[in-house]
Write a protein that binds this DNA or RNA. Structure first.
Lengths: 254, 254
DNA sequence: ATATAAATAAACAAATACAAACACATGATT
DNA sequence: AATCATGTGTTTGTATTTGTTTATTTATAT
């Protein structure tokens, strides 16, 4: 039997069974254990299956288990969920909404799937979520793709954003320090800035850990924001301090 | 036995069996192993089969591994695979390539994953495939999203494309009728047109079923294309007719 | 936590497949 | 007839694949 034939068979079996042991395959195909192991490693590297100790899983099977895990990888999920829900309640039908990148905004996007609105974003994950909607009109601002953050940036993004006006813009940030709102990359900050300038109402979505922290590039002034939405774990003195700059919105304390 | 005769026989056997070893063919045809290997290499280069260690696979058999189930539902997959393979061989490292929408182009994108090139596209499926590459630099031209075709269109796309120049542009179409190349939507056609105008070399990728068919919007003239790549199922009189307009490229007939 | 068994990785050896170079044969071209 | 291109087989060295052996790591049960 050809090697390729064997590999195909293994993938078939794994896809059918979901999960399989090395010994299962040995009995099925009559080759040595090391060959199977080498096959599984190769198929794993090729993305055809997921190698596990003692055998392998099909891609879908592995994803089922990991999905909850991945979602938990993010920090402050609970707080961000709160923020997203509150922000979503502000969006009305017929709004033209800009959504920036970031996990908080992704959670917000999930809430907007069934609204009759127009959504513009430069974030690939946000866009992916929005493609599931059948009521919202979606526009992705494309340009250079930053694979690590899943964001589109650069001159093409900036010049496209210049041409558009929004009723509401939702932006997240890495740091809020007095009046300064900052993020880790100049290019992303520039896009944020343009989107905010062209929006009637400007919303900053940050969880409580972002306050009194600075990041590399300052892209906006808190004075010029209309609302800041955060979670209820914020310290009251911090909240009091920042209320001099901008109107803050928090979910009801339970 | 003539060489041509032997090659045809090999293709026949492979297509019937799906997968075959070099030794199988030796016993069947009574020639030396090296001759068979040379034959298989030749047939592989011509896109008639896929060479693997120890033997060969038929095109369809090889696709079973690479293509998702949805993609297999597409019509003329085999022809489009041929076209995509041929087109991919034209792309060199350091090219700046534009890829339009369409399943043929999606197949082409798979072939480009490991090249050191810059790729620009306005097709979401193409972009999704390309995100798997770690050698290619990717740019998605964003704008209004057409969910049914997965394509970005509209003024934002057009003005972005105006700013970019490509070394090679690969475009598909729904109909080719004499000099007229047509597609089903004005907006997509406009984007095609701009991309082609800004490309040094212009390639039209259409399978044989698209000839002498018209669609709604004529977006380009065959005269202004540099190359037309199609499959070998095209009728020779049709081929002869269209060769007056443009240089045609077909995979080698065995 | 420690001991035990299972699974794995690494190194090696044998078999098989392969690629390149060469030589010979055939048939076409001049 | 001499020359050339093409196709084929042979030889030789290389690369790939596979199984075996030996450590090492990982899982599991006490």
């Amino acid at each position: 039997m050809l090697k390729r034939e064997r590999l195909l068979k293994i993938v078939d079996i794994v896809n059918k069974q979901g999960i399989i042991t090395v010994n299962d395959i040995i009995h099925e195909l009559n080759v040595s254990d090391m060959t199977i192991r080498r096959d599984l490693d190769e198929l794993d590297k090729a993305g055809k299956l997921v190698r596990i100790h003692g055998g392998a899983q099909s891609i879908t099977h592995a994803m089922d288990q990991e999905l909850s895990h991945v979602e938990k990888l993010d920090v402050q999920v609970e707080e961000k969920t709160q923020i997203a829900a509150l922000a979503a309640s502000i969006v009305n039908d017929r709004d033209t909404v800009f959504l920036g990148p970031g996990t908080t905004i992704e959670l917000l996007a999930r809430h907007l799937l069934h609204k009759k609105i127009r959504i513009i974003t430069n974030s690939y994950p946000v866009f992916e979520i929005l493609t599931q909607s059948d009521t919202a009109e979606i526009m992705l601002i494309g340009g250079d793709f930053r694979k690590n953050t899943g964001t589109f940036v650069g001159p093409l993004v900036n010049s496209s954003l210049q041409k558009l006006n929004f009723t509401k813009a939702f932006i997240s940030a890495n740091g809020v320090h007095n009046e300064e709102i900052s993020t880790y990359s100049i290019e992303e900050g520039e896009a944020h800035q343009i989107a905010l300038n062209n929006s009637r109402s400007k919303y900053l979505l940050v969880d409580h850990t972002k306050f009194n922290r600075e990041d590399f590039y300052v892209f906006y002034n808190l004075h010029d924001m209309d609302y800041l939405i955060t979670d209820d774990k914020i310290r009251s003195d911090v909240q009091a301090h920042y209320e001099q700059y901008v109107e803050m919105q928090l979910p009801q304390k339970a």
